[in-house]
Design a protein around this nucleic acid. Structure first.
Lengths: 200, 200, 200, 200
DNA sequence: TGAGTTAGAATGGCACCACCCGTC
DNA sequence: GACGGGTGGTGCCATTCTAACTCA
């Protein structure tokens, strides 16, 4: 599968989503994560520890034939030309967003830009605060009303994700945190939903 | 005062910081917030409600002579040339960061770029999760060890900030949330510290 | 600083004010609270828990040389002779009052008695009910018209103060009440204003 | 009936209770309120407006034979000798208290002093904050456990009482406040309970 | 003019959950 | 590794209080 993770706004879980979706896909086949972000977040994540897939800079991707799955982590505000190139090669675009006002606005702009390209895209609500906050469900309602195709799976805001970034691994490998398995389950659900969408 | 709020990474409270520092300064004198972000977050924030200061796009700032205070909200990843122009006019640069791994890395890069310019800059830790999480204090320690000048004041992660963005106001005007006054006090402390730093 | 907290009427926050101002001053230097009230409210407050300063009965104050700050909590209706002795040693007298009719009347009498002594005194409006009640601002107006020097800082009626009295601590230490920090800030503002007045 | 309203602590509704119980009794027969408080709260209350009974200073009570009911409003902290004289003439002592920590402590002291005299006394919980605060019921429980005889009737903290003090009347006469009649009902219940207790 | 009604703001208490830190 | 306690943020409900409006 060729996935692009894209968002006009930073801090919405773009890198975390890229890393964990790549980790999910690597269970199915050889996977590479292409980092197009000028902050090189994914590359640095990989340097810190051990990820079950390769991470390469987009500028120097090397040969990609051997990979069954390619995930691309994009810069926060790609120019239109870059955006076109990024999207042209993708089967699917995932647009993560946090359920707050500023992120939702940026999401709508991202989606508007994506409409031009004939690529299927799906919003993914991440960083959902715990109940009794209704931010998550309200964000979903807003997206529904705006007609934005949205993944049913969603990702909560867990401290385990930060631990994973600190250790250079995915939450699946995080030890000593009883919620880390839950966090991994959430991205597994996202991965399965994406597989289903790309096959159906 | 001429403030620039700058960060290489998005989602670290850059716009929230810009809006609230401008609100703080508007208590002291006529203030304008220049929005240089391609997402126009600040401009949209202002459109939703009523802020106690003007917000203008950086491309079309108009006459600025009448303003005692100018705050500039920058794009997430300005190019070096843009960065130079933004910083040249500033007395002070504030670099907000969240206390997580990815944000801290980006902060260090931001700071590295700022060292070239002869402008005083200060990191501001925002979006601090509530105790017993020690993310805030650990981030501070990391910054101290890295030799990054850091504001003693800090800003916690409050739901009231999202409410303010929703209403197009500052947290000072948010009704129905008992923690909103506390949230405002935090930015007031930041403002006071910046005033003190610019005078001393 | 040598502070006396004085009021002809009870139930206006005299003991609460004494305890919290002593707590504020104990941040600056070694502080003692002298309890001159026959009900020994302050002493009992201290017995219940742990205050960051000593509390002693006025009759047996012991050696006071080592203290940088002395706060005296007076009885509700001291006789003139006692009043003179209490006030003679003070640099500053704080007269708390609630914003109701009976308390305001008693305040005016207190102030009249204080005029004889050459000591600076300031009224402090406490126990202010929440908006939309205007009791607080109306009390301030009344005091202004009566020419009573009044602190700009004021203290609202919070349940957290009762919790602090129950636990034998200050509101700063009260856990589980989101408004407790706000309550503490109010007394901090009072303390700062008094410091400023005594220095200027 | 000869009633004494007594409390070691101020600000617990002593004067309000005296005034309203006297107003209640004046419906049954000629009533006088003797003000023994050095702050002369009751006298000043009477001066402001029109009460349905006479108010006289205790020092100069005049002839009292013509009165069917005598209510005495005592000073906040009477000396033992004064206390004896006040109580000797009373059929009943009412000890108002607010449901907070400091007031309850003072109440226990008051009651302890009253035990020496062979006079029936009853605690009256006043100034009860609105639900969901449980201060009122908790105070009642505390008194029950301490073995203090307590009136079942109780008085809530209404803004109307302050309005009455401002106008120099009782809450029964307060206009424009929908809760004033309720407030009056509460003191009527207290009066009826006291009558029943003095007769039975 | 006066009384009743409604809307808005604010407090207090509670339920729910996440996080950290002990102990077992 | 599992579990419980302590701390704290969020949303909800009941209540009070004021102001503005309506009605007689």
């Amino acid at each position: 599968m060729k996935l692009t993770v894209l968002s006009y706004k930073g801090g919405v879980g773009k890198t975390t989503t890229s890393v964990h979706l790549a980790a999910y896909l690597s269970q199915r086949g050889k996977t590479v994560l292409l980092d197009a972000d000028p902050n090189s977040s994914s590359l640095e994540w990989a340097e810190m520890g051990k990820l079950p897939f390769e991470v390469r800079p987009l500028e120097d991707p090397g040969k990609l034939k051997k990979f069954a799955h390619i995930v691309t982590d994009t810069p926060a505000r790609p120019r239109n030309k870059t955006l076109r190139e990024l999207v042209r090669e993708s089967e699917l675009v995932v647009v993560p967003t946090a359920p707050d006002q500023l992120s939702m606005r940026a999401l709508l702009k991202t989606v508007e830009a994506l409409r031009e390209f004939l690529v299927p895209y799906y919003a993914l609500i991440t960083l959902i605060p715990p109940p009794p906050s209704k931010d998550g469900s309200e964000a979903r309602k807003t997206l529904l009303e705006a007609g934005v195709p949205t993944l049913r799976s969603e990702v909560r805001r867990w401290a385990a994700f930060n631990r994973a970034a600190l250790a250079g691994t995915t939450v699946r490998e995080v030890r000593g945190d009883p919620r880390a398995p839950l966090a991994w389950l959430e991205y597994e659900a996202v991965g399965r939903e994406l597989e289903w969408l790309s096959q159906g």
